Amino acid sequence: MYSSISIIVMLRLFLLISCILFANGSSFEERLKILEIIVDKQQAEMDLLKQANIELKQENLQLNHDNTELKSRVKELELDVSRLKGDGMHNNPSYESHINAAMYDNVDSINKSRKLETSDWHGTPNVQNDRNTHGIASLSKKELLQSERIAFHIYLSSNKCFNNHQIIVYDTEVLDIGNGYNEHDGIYIVPESGIYVFTWTFIADLAEYAVTEIVVNGATQGWTISDGSHQSILYNPSSGLVLARVNVGDHVFIRRVQGRGCTAYSGGYVQPTFSGWQLSP
């Protein structure tokens, strides 16, 4: 922009000088003075144009800076909106109220369409659908279990001695959706029929070994061997995994078969576990 304006100004100056030099009736001194005045005027205009150009550049830099700040703010707002749409919404009271209302509307709809009774929910009497926490009691136990996939995860909290043919009692419950595991006897009672995945780990103490098995409804479905008997300085965990089709009420447990010593080791970075989940109904 600056160069094009300069060319225009120089052309104007050239034309004026040409007119003066070839004008008649003026002495050389007069024409020279006129030229000096014109040159001074044009120089003043050039200075003004230079100053205007500097100011325009400064404005352009400021605009670029403002544009960068606006882009940064837009990104921040997009992140805020994303958090509100995602995990952050569970901390929003109005959102929680909306979800609770939707949940109880769904319960009401199920109860009205199916006319459910609660005789199979531990004898609980029918409850009016008044959108309170007791409204869920009108759903059957089976439907409540189906609302969340059956799963359990238990571990052995400390060293225990289990002899041959004895059930290994994993004593600390981490998860038990369906309330099927008993941490006092080590037996898992299937709460709902289906295809299940069962997995377990066992760790024999140093200088000992143990064979373990998983028993599903009275039948052995798999074995593992944890062998720490060969003067090893490291523990040797064993693990097993089986898939089984089971029915409501079937018993599943882990049992020691044979070995040397009786210790099931738990400590440090090793911990025996017993887990399972429903793969499909």
Rank of each mutant, 00 (worst) to 15 (best):
Q221A: 14
F202H: 01
P191H: 01
D227S: 05
V270M: 15
V246H: 08
I168T: 11
N179G: 12
P237F: 05
R149H: 10
F152N: 00
Y235M: 01
I167P: 09
T220L: 07
A204W: 01
N163L: 07
R256D: 00
S226L: 01
Q166N: 11
I189T: 12
I150P: 07
I154Y: 11
D205Q: 12
R255F: 02
P237Y: 01
F274T: 08
V242D: 03
K141P: 07
A207E: 15
I195T: 13
H153M: 10
Q146L: 11
V169T: 11
S140K: 14
A219W: 13
G194Q: 05
T212Q: 10
V252N: 08
S226F: 02
A219K: 10
S140W: 09
A204F: 04
V248P: 05
R256Q: 02
S239T: 08
W223K: 14
I214L: 10
L144S: 08
G218T: 02
I189K: 04
V252G: 08
L234V: 14
L241H: 10
E148W: 08
Q221V: 15
Q271M: 14
K142H: 07
H230V: 05
H251Q: 11
G222M: 12
L206P: 02
S232M: 10
I233V: 11
Q166E: 15
N182H: 08
G218K: 01
R245H: 13
T220C: 09
I177E: 06
E208I: 10
G222W: 12
F152A: 01
D185N: 15
T199H: 13
R255N: 04
D176H: 04
R245Y: 12
S147C: 10
G276P: 00
G180H: 03
A264M: 12
E183F: 11
G186P: 00
A210T: 06
T172N: 06
Y196C: 03
A244L: 05
T263C: 05
V270F: 10
F253D: 02
S158W: 09
C262N: 15
E183S: 12
G194A: 04
R260C: 15
R256H: 10
E183N: 15
A207I: 14
A210P: 07
D185H: 09
